[in-house]
Design a protein around this nucleic acid. Structure first.
Lengths: 334, 334
DNA sequence: ATCCCAGATGTTTACGTAAACATAGCATCT
DNA sequence: AGATGCTATGTTTACGTAAACATCTGGGAT
């Protein structure tokens, strides 16, 4: 048995035709009990595993859904992937994924690669894509969903929240607590476009209210608690010290809390903080972070459901923005 | 253009044969500059995307690597996946993955599904599998790597560490600090077999040294900081209170630290703690956790490299255990 | 006895690609 | 001039599966 057995091999073993094997194994059409048994026995004996490549080629359809994530280094995306995966698994669909590392250029290549598997749908992160990416997707005719963001023009349907508005809401909340001098800590500016939008919304609202952005500390590399801790220390050591810091996400903000705890800086008197995402681990911190909760699992689930649908059902004429909302969680940090 | 253009369509457009198109697009064989240009123009005009299903079927080989993870809910596995993915991406290989949720039964189905894509390799979590899973993999002839664990019989090659030994080392360390009355907090017992092995090693070493396990708190559901925080509170509120707690992972242990911080329990005087994994976020905590660092990214990378190889190269005759080691990190918690 | 029909099974074909095997054109050498 | 050997291109075929269509068998209706 040097190569994998095919239906033909089973057919020979069972003394029937390949087509009969196909019918028996899929339970379509008629088959006498005798033949049925022989085929099943032979299949088991040979250790038959169907070849989906052949089925997919022949049927001109696959059970694949392509997923292009910005990164696997951020818990947020693995939660989205988790939502996608659990939804697909229920229908025996398979995710095929790749990572763009926040580069639209890599996304373009990745999408091309993913499309060559003839997936029935594709899920992208964010609304910004190169024109070539859009063209390839349009030409392919696959169903598309975009997750995370709503601020822009979706290709077909976007599941997420307004990042800009999330920034504004956070700013409004902090302003309402009396803070006026703000710092910002974030990473991957110019690449993590959602973070940039939040910052833009935040900044605008602060300025309109007469507040000011004292420092904006943006670094390369991925965000982490330790980066947030160090960034916070840097901001507080600087001459022009902010009263409050807006972080591009919870990991960074939690690092800020840790710095304060370790250095005896009182929160929120000496420093107020706000994050973004509402990750589960925040609940466990000794000081509850004020943050904006995002529907990560839900975005994954809804996007998966959307791209799973058959073409005819409910295809919206115009691009749709499905707002899954966000929620300001008022903690103890501002 | 209702369906995707094929090489045949390009051929018609360019006035050549399908085979010439194939040659030009892959840059194999000869082609006159004129034909080359015509083919490329036509391909671009029609928005040609190759069909890998056909290529894979025809070539009897795919660029796919199957990955069966225990869960996406635990950061550890997304880090492994990350290592796998970055290694594969460098060779333009594609991961196809699925999640077992720590069930060997689901793993069996998942493996069958994954194998039907004719991947060139498969990566599994842990060493325990059903006999059917083993048989299917053996019959398929794909390369296999197992990650995380070394305590058992690998199918072909295992990349990881001795979980039992990690438990023992942790116990030895805690014993050396004078603790004798231990608690344990973990989840998914009977399902997360690696955690069970660590506990077994820990328990054995404690007993041999004359210490005792005062309480073992095991719950269902996935582990998280908040679960650890609550579990710790429960253990400390109980009549028979341990001096030290061994947690099945860092998330739970960090929750323990948070409970102590929030309740003013002094570490390690009133309670000592130890975790497992050495996740990056620990660095940012105000109290550094004593834990065992595991090579998560490296396990993913090495496993990917292993299954990527061509069959002839370096195929070990006997199952190999590649010990990527672990390292006790002495923090401030014991 | 004849005909019809349904159930059971077989044969042909196509999905898109690329190896293997032609073949045609043309320059070079003797 | 004829043989030789490239280069550039075309034709056939196979990969494994499943729809569509074909065939055969036997039982029931007339």
């Amino acid at each position: 048995m040097d190569s994998r057995p095919t239906m033909g091999d089973i057919a020979a073993e069972a003394g029937v035709s390949q087509m009969t094997v196909s019918r028996v194994l899929r339970g379509t059409g008629q088959a006498s009990p005798d033949v049925q048994k022989r085929v099943e026995t032979a299949a088991r004996k040979l250790g038959y595993v169907p070849n989906r490549l052949a089925t997919a080629l022949r049927d001109e359809t696959t059970p694949l859904i392509a997923v292009a994530l910005a990164t696997l280094g951020n818990r947020v995306f693995s939660e989205v992937l988790n939502g996608v995966n659990e939804t697909l698994a229920a229908q025996r669909l398979q995710p095929v994924f790749g990572v763009t590392e926040y580069s639209l250029q890599r996304e373009e290549e990745l999408v091309r690669d993913l499309l060559s598997w003839r997936p029935r749908g594709i899920i992208l992160s964010g609304l910004e894509h190169t024109e070539a990416t859009r063209a390839a997707i349009r030409a392919s005719g696959v169903r598309v969903a975009e997750v995370m963001d709503l601020d822009g023009e979706p290709i077909s349907a976007a599941f997420g929240l307004s990042q800009t508005e999330a920034g504004r809401v956070t700013a409004r909340h902090m302003l309402s607590k009396g803070y006026r001098r703000f710092g910002y800590i974030g990473s991957q500016s110019g690449r993590d476009l959602r973070a940039d939008k939040r910052l833009a919304g935040f900044r605008q609202t602060v300025r309109e209210a007469g507040g000011q952005m004292v420092t904006e500390h943006v670094f390369d590399g991925s965000s982490s608690m330790i980066a947030g801790r160090r960034g916070t220390q840097a901001l507080l050591d600087a001459a022009d010290r902010p009263e409050a810091i807006y972080y591009s996400n919870d990991d960074l903000a939690a690092g800020g809390i840790m710095h304060c705890l370790a250095s005896g800086i009182s929160i929120p008197q000496e420093l107020a903080l706000a994050g973004f995402n509402g990750l589960a681990f925040l609940e466990a911190l000794p000081i509850r972070l004020t943050t904006v909760e995002t529907p990560r699992l839900e975005m994954g689930r809804r996007a998966a459901l959307y791209v799973m649908q058959d073409d005819h059902e409910t295809e919206p004429a115009a691009p749709a923005r499905i707002d899954l909302g966000f929620r300001l969680i008022e903690g103890e940090t501002c």
